[in-house]
Design a protein around this nucleic acid. Structure first.
Lengths: 338, 338
DNA sequence: TTGTAAGCGTTATCAT
DNA sequence: ATGATAACGCTTACAA
């Protein structure tokens, strides 16, 4: 469909100036007489002129757009982060691309394509290979990692994991639990890997042998299956520390089916504090991550970098907090972690 | 940052051809000798050539991108639809913009800006004024409405509301409920308006006076407040039909606080069947909408239209189904609606 | 302060 | 089948 809005040439003619002047006015350039500025503005208004973003990008090497790359898998985690990102970015006048890699083989290529359309992008988790990120970073494309192991000196945002995992585990020890299971795949994400590390460290310090993780995907069904297997193997366990809330909720279901009382026969904890966790029965003890804030912070970091407001690398660590509910054992006060 | 990838000129020189030939090869044009095609492909590969999307858009009037406009408010509804949309669109090789209007006054303008960056877009709910949509549609920009009253002959996707609302209300009547409350704002969204219409019609046919809707926003807190007011006014009610699940869950909380037993003292129903609804206690009777499918269908409609695979206007109505759980009263079999 | 003109990297129309 | 070359609409030196 042909361009329906007018061009800079028509504005220029109407205002009786050159296109350069229109461009200057449009850019808020100072070196323009108030009188001509006024004429140009009027012409712009009368014609409903709106600069072509393609032409602008081509000539000006600037897109006024940024992108977020995420693995998908849906679930509340990614959507909250993405919506937080969108909110901040669009406040700042940046258009927002989203790209879910869906575990596709083409992911790397799709990201490279996206990189050509934006002034910078956010990469979540292990969506893209390290060398792709490194390549972009070296090519000077601003990149912010989100919940991803930093590559080189690129900017990064993440939520605290290790200390919160420690606090959680200490809390569970205080409940008297001794036989622990970790449900999740540390190799699957940097976040989970840190959580497992904190978990293991505390057990180790307590003189307990940290168990190998029991692998599980991230969805409720994954947690259900993994927990079902686990419980059927009759490896007796006091408490299941799940890598996220969905896994934990799946585990609760598996335990229920096996007539286990929670937390008496089996305690279960999650991670994220999604909306469900408060409503599930019994209430799920978990670690709250500031999901929207993660997205917003990534947006701010990226935009500041793009606009040259910051040139030094910056890594942000957002605080998390232990949320104690009924699923971990007898009630106690709420703790906080940074 | 300067363009790091090579241009069509460098490829042309390397392959010993003109840029026109490179462009043809790149476009999969047939009128090219296999031999030269091969040379060009090799050059492209060796240089890691990737055409500039801006230049392509400027010259070719095509963006290979589409956008979704949504009101935000977060919550599972929008994110599921958006993620469904992204999945389908990116499968089709279309980049995806998202734009939340957040109720901003600038919304119309932001949408107009977005329209310049895409080949077409999806507009959800009442995010944008009718005349803006109409203007785009008349300007020949493909637009798909999602859960929005159709404007002119534009394509549209929505989930069935009226019949499902009727079925739900009939079901509630069968439970013996007689004093109904509708919790939500029909004027707030076309979906809610249809739900209220179906609800009212059945009551009317049953010889009951349809109650005026009790206004409520879409979030749990809104539902909580509205229900709290309602219950404190002591207008006695048998059953609260909420406009969505979040409102219903808020209402459940308010009822609980007032020592009401659900469903015995008060029955409550929702709409959407978000993940929470199954887990809430008691299980929430609701109407399931195919959220991801809504997004995917919108993507398909839009892309087919953009690619000229379809020229006739098309309105898709996706089926919904009544999901009966404990919150509506004594147990019964599950029904289905289209 | 304002205008001229040279890109920016494609696509597409002619010729050849 | 291939090559020149003119758009596409803007930004930005460089002149005036």
């Amino acid at each position: 469909m042909p361009r329906t809005t007018s061009t800079i040439y028509q504005v220029a003619r109407r205002a009786g100036v050159s296109i350069a002047t229109v461009s200057r006015v449009q850019a808020g350039h100072h070196a323009v007489t108030p009188a001509t500025r006024e004429r140009v503005h009027r012409a712009i208004h009368e014609l409903g002129y709106r600069p072509s973003s393609s032409a602008r990008a081509l000539a000006g090497q600037r897109h006024d757009a940024t992108g977020v790359v995420f693995p998908n898998l849906s679930g509340p985690y990614y959507s909250e982060v993405i919506l937080g990102y969108e909110e901040r970015a669009s406040e700042e006048g940046e258009s927002v691309f989203i790209l879910g890699t869906h575990g596709r083989a083409r992911a790397n290529e799709q990201v490279a394509e996206l990189a050509d359309r934006v002034d910078g992008l956010v990469v979540m988790g292990r969506t893209v290979d390290d060398d792709v990120v490194e390549h972009m970073h070296e090519a000077g494309i601003p990149v912010v990692m989100l919940a991803r192991p930093p590559v080189g000196t690129a900017d990064a945002v993440r939520a605290e994991n290790t200390e919160a995992a420690r606090a959680l585990t200490v809390h569970l020890l205080a409940h008297g639990h001794r036989r622990f299971t970790f449900l999740g795949e540390p190799k699957g994400s940097p976040d989970v890997s840190e959580r497992y590390a904190g978990f293991s460290a505390v057990l180790d310090e307590a003189g307990l042998e940290p168990p190998a993780p029991v692998r599980s995907g991230f969805r409720e069904l994954d947690g259900y299956r993994a927990a079902a297997d686990l419980l059927d193997r009759a490896d007796s366990t006091d408490v299941v520390v799940a890598a996220n809330d969905e896994i934990a909720i799946g585990a609760i279901r598996a335990a229920r089916e096996r007539q286990l009382r929670i937390p008496d026969d089996l305690a279960i904890t999650g991670w994220d504090d999604i909306a469900l966790s408060e409503h599930v029965s019994p209430g799920l003890t978990t670690v709250r991550q500031p999901l929207r804030e993660l997205g917003k912070t990534a947006a701010t970091l990226l935009i500041d970098r793009i606009r040259g407001l910051r040139t030094e690398p910056c890594q942000v660590l957002l605080p998390t907090s232990l949320v104690t509910r009924a699923s971990c054992g007898a009630h106690e006060e709420q703790e906080d972690t940074r």
